[in-house]
């Protein structure tokens, strides 16, 4: 996986103006199981695919509550993700201690990005190998951000990260224009559909995905399995008739994705094929 002589430490530039170590960290995000997020004007829904390392183990938690008004979904090194969510929780608690108000989401995201950036400029540090989808609600409405190991952050209407996330992105790209005025329930449904896209043929069950919601009058919470199952069942049954029409479209998107990502990037996708989903 060594590209050349410029990738042994984070702070060394390649002549082409790249920092390979940082790019490898971003690669770690692509290897992790998928996480998706989407938002309306009032709600944010986060979702992720639960993948167990072995049939003998359970999966790792990939969605974290940060505060009543902020949650994250992660892809990449879960351990790094936990550390960062703990940092975010701390920031929220400290802010509300001082001001008795909720920390604006955008500010937390910038603080998080700055923290990640520091790791790209210190020889004795390692960039965080995790991508975070930060969903939150504040005075200016609902927000969804993506935080990258490089220290970059972006605001999205809907986004997906992690392995085979391109399929989910394609699904979201096709539908995002309606999201702003979507109802909460439609948003959850779209989240599950997007997650299903990343499964590539594997059937979507409530045990291989986690969905969390937050919004106006609804503090961040992870939906319990029974609720998710109910929602999946409702559209699986309804979709039985319609779905064939939708399927080719998604498949086309998948191919496009593979083209876009190109050789090296695509390896992430192939490594976790054949990993059995964990049924708990």
């Amino acid at each position: 996986m060594f590209r050349n002589q410029y990738d042994t430490d984070v702070t060394t530039w390649s002549p082409a103006g790249r920092l390979f170590q940082v790019e490898y960290a971003m690669e770690a995000v692509k290897q992790g199981s998928a996480a998706i997020g989407l938002r309306s004007k009032t709600h944010v829904v986060l979702g992720c695919v639960n993948k167990a390392n072995s049939e003998l183990s359970s999966h790792q938690k990939k969605i974290f509550k940060v505060d009543d008004h902020i949650g994250v979904a992660i892809a990449g090194l879960t351990a790094d993700g936990r550390v960062l969510s703990r940092y975010m929780r701390n920031e929220c608690i400290n802010y509300s201690f001082t001001y008795e108000a909720q920390l604006p989401v955008g500010r937390l995201v910038v603080q998080l990005a700055d923290k990640a950036q520091v790791c790209t400029q210190r020889s004795w540090k390692r960039p965080y190998g995790v991508g975070l989808l930060v969903g939150g609600l504040d005075e200016s409405g609902a927000h969804l951000y993506y935080n990258c190991p490089s220290g970059n952050y972006f605001e999205y209407q809907a986004f997906a990260i992690g392995s085979r996330s391109q399929a989910a992105k394609t699904y979201l790209e096709r539908r995002f224009e309606n999201f702003a005025d979507s109802s909460r329930d439609d948003l959850v449904k779209d989240a599950l559909m997007a997650i299903r896209e990343t499964l590539q043929g594997e059937t979507l069950t409530s045990s291989i995905c986690t969905v969390a919601v937050l919004g106006v009058g609804e503090p961040f919470h992870i939906l319990d399995q029974a609720t998710v199952k109910q929602i999946i069942d409702s559209f699986e049954i309804a979709g039985e008739q319609e779905d064939p029409a939708g399927e080719p479209d998604a498949a086309a998107g998948q191919e496009a994705a593979a083209d876009e990502q190109g050789g090296a990037a695509d390896q992430g996708g192939s490594t976790d094929q054949g990993v059995a989903p964990m049924d708990i």
């Binding site: 001082t98 001001y99 008795e100 108000a101 604006p104 955008g106 500010r107 910038v110 504040d138 005075e139 200016s140």
Partner: peptide, 13 residues
Amino acid sequence: DGNSLGPKEVHNY
């Protein structure tokens, strides 16, 4: 970023 501290926040501070 368009956010600003209101009187409640300043009072608590």
